[in-house]
């Protein structure tokens, strides 16, 4: 494996649901240890892109490589091996209601029988501490937690198995600005501690500026601009300008009637 090989490489990826084309030749590289944030409006296909990489959806055509290994059309064993490298923070947390917090955090390790239940609880408590939660939270049910705490538990679960790649799906959606900033800080801190590559999707520009090394903008199923986060304010792309400044006027027309 060469040093320059990207951790994740998407090339000309297409995905449609019936007649609705969502990804229309999407190409994007994410380097090893890099944090890339994909921005774009609602319904532009950001979540579909993530789900195609995770194998939750099957891309219609194109190529998705993880460490040079093809994801599209891979068999179950390959898929499971690739998924072992991943951690994922879902938009709504996606915590399992039927399990206490500590079992949620160490679920992956328990499922693979890599640890026994005592070790799993100990590990969960240490991961909870990493995201700023006290040990008492471990025995609570997810429904007893606030939205911000659920996000933190979701983050603890995402990093529990020390993954090589962590995906963040709208990590700050639904949080107040202060809690959103706390989560952003935790994402930066934990990703560095684990030494992971990060791929995030968001439409929260404050979040994107904080956690990204590089930003890519998705529009109509394609990446229309990608560059270092420092360049985003002078990208020279009118679509990016309109999006990051949150203007109603511009080339991006929302499908709403006045």
């Amino acid at each position: 494996m060469s040093q320059s090989q990207p951790k994740i490489s998407l090339e000309n990826v297409h995905k449609a649901f019936g007649r609705k084309v969502v990804l229309d030749g999407l190409s994007l590289d994410v380097g090893v240890g890099e944090s890339v944030v994909v921005i774009g409006g609602s319904g532009t296909g950001k979540s579909v892109m993530l789900k195609c990489i995770l194998g939750l959806l099957h891309a219609d055509s194109g190529s998705i490589l993880v460490d040079g290994e093809q994801v599209i059309g891979s068999n179950t064993e390959t898929r499971e091996r690739i998924n072992h490298k991943f951690g994922m923070l879902f938009q709504g947390g996606a915590l399992f209601d039927s399990l206490p917090v500590w079992e949620n955090v160490s679920f992956g390790l328990l499922a693979e029988k890599r640890v026994n239940r005592d070790e799993a609880k100990e590990l969960a408590i240490s991961k909870l501490a990493q995201v700023g939660l006290v040990a008492e939270v471990a025995d609570l049910s997810p429904s007893e937690l606030s939205g911000g705490m659920q996000k933190r538990v979701g983050l603890a679960r995402a990093i529990a198995a020390d993954p090589e790649v962590i995906f963040f799906d709208e990590p700050t959606t639904g949080l107040d600005p202060i809690m959103a900033d706390v989560i952003n800080d935790l994402i930066v801190k934990t990703t560095r501690e684990v030494g992971a590559t990060a791929l995030s999707i968001t439409h929260d520009m404050a979040s994107a500026r904080k956690i990204a090394d590089r930003v890519a903008m998705l529009y109509e199923g394609k990446i229309i601009w990608a560059g270092p986060v420092a360049d985003i304010d002078h990208s020279g792309n009118e679509y990016v300008d309109q999006f990051i400044n949150g203007r109603a006027e511009g080339p991006i027309q929302m499908a709403v009637r006045a």
């Binding site: 939750l56 879902f90 992956g108 499922a111 693979e112």
Partner: peptide, 17 residues
């Protein structure tokens, strides 16, 4: 059904289950 719409089933898959 609730697990499906709250992405808990997707979470299971990403946790190799």
């Amino acid at each position: 059904g609730t697990m499906r719409v709250t992405e808990q089933i997707d979470a299971l898959t990403t946790l190799s289950t």
